[in-house]
Amino acid sequence: MTSTPLSGTAGGLRLTLDGVSLGRPGAPVLTGLDLDVTPGEILTVVGPSGCGKSTLLRTLAGLLPPLDGSVTQDGTRLHGPGAERSLVFQEDALLPWRTVRGNVELPLAIAGTSRAERRAHAERWLDRVGLTGRGTAWPHRLSGGQRQRVQLARALAARPRALLMDEPFGALDARTRAQMQDLLVDVLTGTGATVLFVTHDVDEALFLGDRVALIGAGRLLDVSTVPHPRDRSARTRPETAALRRDILDSLST
């Protein structure tokens, strides 16, 4: 694998769920789910806690087989996890016995990149997420926000075609969270990766997403197109405010 450019040109994956039921055997949390995530889009998923957002993401990651229906990527059925779909966790999922750089190098090592190359590549990714010079630190020396930056770098280092994010900024304070959203938008440019971003924060969903999927009561309630994605000033525009009100209304019922 050649890794000179940070961003790949492989393009995003199309992820399709067709009549899917998810959850533990005997206790489905989501049923009759039809969803088509188009290549390269950012689809945000909102819903109350416990509605099955994370279950949906774990299924797409390949960690959890669907109970029913079919889950496909570019038309072929999913079989377990794969490097082309990387998952960013809400909790700290860095390996504490690897340095910051060691964590970012991990997917490259798995892909068989040479030692020198993965080191240089990881350093560039750390620069990109604003952690220049922290490569040799142990993860526990970093703050929560910094660790999520490392997770982001690790998830993107091997140029996945889909990025699955499970409330990655959920545990951060408001200011850090906004910084991380901007950082995410920045690092995604040029990757072409399809992004599925789960959050319980409607504003976050409306800022990041091209489309917003709304989940509640064990099913997919609605998928709406966001009028002005990734535009902070759009928050006050009437069409965004209307969509925001609609979503909040659906969530509260």
Binding site: G82, A83, L87, F89, A93, A155
Partner: peptide
Amino acid sequence: EAVRTLGG
């Protein structure tokens, strides 16, 4: 899970 989703 992290290592598996990175392709390990």
